[in-house]
Design a protein around this nucleic acid. Structure first.
Lengths: 129, 129
DNA sequence: CAATTAGTTTACGTATACGTTAACTTTATC
DNA sequence: GATAAAGTTAACGTATACGTAAACTAATTG
């Protein structure tokens, strides 16, 4: 049940290139085991990759995503680091809430344009037949 | 009441550089009038700039934003273009809805990490005093 | 065992989104 | 009328996120 994946399997699953996955590794976002020289990915690695792609869809840079992944990895054993962690979380939260507002506004805008366009289409239908 | 703006006024208002604004013009996202050689921005131009920045916050490329702005500009007089317009709108809508889901999921993740961290902080408080 | 097939590293190339001088022109101010 | 302040174009530089080609190795398959 606990499958392992090759780099090309993951690439296919997520519709990205193996090159991209290697690049994320170069930048320290993911660290698969090796079997000899071959990269071997666990389900956990796969989950990380999913988080990376979600971060990208949200418009974050790979550097920002790396910081974000660190939030998950932090074993918050050291109290000194925990406050920093909470600070980063609330910063990230502010960005995301702003994005939510932007999306709501943009979807409303699109609604408007769509309605106008559809109305004009209907009017045009009545004209020609 | 219908103010005009210089490039540096706009730059300051939106906390970006004049260079960025000129760059958006180079890429065809905005086309201010000129007074001699100086760029002069109307309130409408200002609105466009706001849309550009919103698009950026949503992670769209300038090229995508240009297409998006075209949705606003389209005088949908030609029926043939209207169907294309509606198609683009629904494509954009799919992206934004996916982003909404991503944000909800990510905020939930952050909630989890934050709760855990705060619980650990409280436990640590009880330990040392 | 020859030949795919899959994977590896290294290195250079490229699109995007500006930053940063440089050299020049207007416009405003003293 | 000199000088500063604001603006202009042109050109080169830079960080990010990969694409692409080369040259190699290891594993599988007929």
């Amino acid at each position: 049940m606990d499958r392992l994946f090759s780099i090309n399997e993951l690439a296919e699953q997520f519709d990205i290139t193996a090159r991209a996955i290697r690049f994320y590794e170069d930048k320290g976002l993911i660290s698969p085991d090796r079997a000899g020289s071959r990269r071997v990915y666990t389900r956990r690695d796969r989950g990380r990759l999913q988080l990376i792609l979600r971060g990208k869809r949200l418009g974050f840079s790979l550097e920002e995503i790396r910081e974000y992944l660190d939030l998950y990895d932090q074993d918050p054993a050291q109290v000194s680091q925990m406050q920093l962690l909470l600070t980063k979380i609330s910063e990230r939260r502010l960005q995301l809430v702003q994005q939510q507002k932007d999306i709501v506004q943009t979807l409303a805008d699109l609604d408007g344009i769509q309605e106008q366009t559809e109305a004009l289409l209907k009017a045009a239908e009545g004209t020609k037949p």
